[in-house]
Amino acid sequence: MGKILIIFPGALGDILLALPVIQAIKHRFPTAVLDFVGDVRYFGLLKCTFLFNSCFDFNSSDFITLFSPTANYPAAANFFRSYDLAIVWLRCPGSEKQLADKLNKYGIRTVIINDPNPQPHPPIHHTRYLLNSVKQLLESQILVPPYFRLTGELQQFARSFFLNYPNRRWVVVHPGSGSPCKNWPLENFAVVINQLNERDWGVLVPIGPAERSNKELLQKLCGRAVFVENLAIEKLAALFSRCSACIGNDSGISHLAALVGIPTLVLFVGTNPAIWAPWGKNVFILAKDSTIPITTEQTFCLKLPVSNTKSSLQIVECLSTVKVIHKVIEILEGEQTSY
């Protein structure tokens, strides 16, 4: 296998859940060149995985031609014909054959196209679902956490950032997500932040473009927090690497913290952790009983992305601030000597 093109214009959490599968593909074809097509916002982070030779913007003209029945640009044909295999994780109902035919026409001999969104019933973890879509390529279906290493420049950025706050221990608190139905109440996060401040923990709150209202309300409700706004994903990863833990909803930011390796407490209020649990060796999940079938609890250890780790699932009737604060303190007391 010479060159492999992976097309996946997914959100941050989706991309991070795909990394173990892409790593397995790279392990199966160690001499192959892997290129990635997706959202440019994540390219800096993907460079830290050392999986890809090049990354390309999904919204460029070369890829827009794939979805036009008539467009046939020579530049696109020249680009695609160098690849032996294309793996396309993209929801395009009714257009799969048209897309495959066009990629074949452009010179890619083997094309695998799959909807990247698993069905809720029966629940299958997103990473395992993506693995099943390419199982014909792999000799083994054993997955391991993706390799991740910050560049020297990113490490220096994080060191310089925290020089402004000497002698502090830090926890990441992220109250947002891609959907309001996945969010634990913002007022509850404010209570957690205040409790951490009382215990002399510094709190780092990432704020994205759509979360400015969260910042304004948190500033009114809680004491000391450092807000980092619209920071590049790879720079957030660098800051997270110097923190002791992360608390957040089911979001790309929680998946990022888990990838970095810090203990990560994820609150599932509207999605099923059996499908969307982050990859990581220190992932702790609190889930409302309405988000996951109770029969899944007994077998959840088999569904966690990484087994034989400190990761755990706890199903509760309600995600009260008392329960969450108790779990946060438990995690911090168990981990702070390591960070």
Rank of each mutant, 00 (worst) to 15 (best):
R224H: 13
P206R: 00
V203L: 05
V226D: 02
L231F: 08
S241C: 13
Q219A: 05
I193K: 06
N197V: 08
I193Q: 02
N214K: 07
K215M: 15
R212K: 13
D200N: 10
C243W: 01
A238M: 10
A225S: 13
P209N: 00
L236S: 05
N194Q: 08
V228W: 07
G223H: 04
G202Q: 05
S244N: 10
V191D: 03
V191M: 06
V228L: 05
G223S: 12
E211F: 15
K220S: 10
R212A: 13
V203R: 04
N197H: 08
V228T: 14
L218S: 07
K220D: 02
C222T: 15
R199M: 15
P206A: 00
V205T: 13
V192P: 03
G208Q: 04
V228M: 09
Q195W: 03
S241K: 11
A225G: 11
R242E: 14
R212T: 15
P209L: 02
F189W: 02
E229P: 06
F189G: 00
A245S: 12
V192C: 11
C243D: 01
I193W: 07
I193H: 06
A225Y: 01
L217R: 10
G223K: 03
Q219G: 13
G208W: 03
L231N: 02
F227S: 14
F189N: 02
C246W: 00
E211I: 09
G223E: 01
F240T: 02
I233G: 04
P206T: 02
S213G: 08
L239H: 14
V205Y: 09
I207F: 13
A237C: 12
Q219C: 08
V203W: 09
G223T: 07
V192H: 06
R199W: 11
V228Y: 10
S213L: 10
G223F: 06
L196R: 03
G208D: 00
G208S: 08
A190Y: 12
S244P: 00
I207D: 01
L231C: 12
A210G: 02
C246Y: 01
E198G: 14
E198T: 15
A225I: 08
L217G: 05
V205A: 09
I233H: 07
F189T: 01
L231W: 00
D200W: 00
I207H: 07
A225L: 09
K220C: 06
A245H: 04
F227G: 14
R199Y: 10
K235F: 03
S244H: 11
G223Y: 03
P209Q: 01
L231E: 07
G202E: 06
V205R: 02
L218R: 06
E216M: 12
A210M: 09
R224G: 11
L217I: 15
L221I: 14
A210T: 05
K235T: 10
G223D: 03
L236T: 04
A225E: 03
F240R: 01
N214I: 14
C222S: 14
S213M: 06
A190F: 14
D200A: 11
V191L: 09
I247D: 00
K215A: 15
L196K: 04
C222G: 08
L196P: 07
A210V: 06
R199P: 14
E198S: 15
V192N: 04
I207L: 07
N194C: 08
N214V: 12
I207W: 08
P206W: 02
S244M: 04
N230Q: 13
E211K: 03
C222N: 05
F240D: 00
K235P: 10
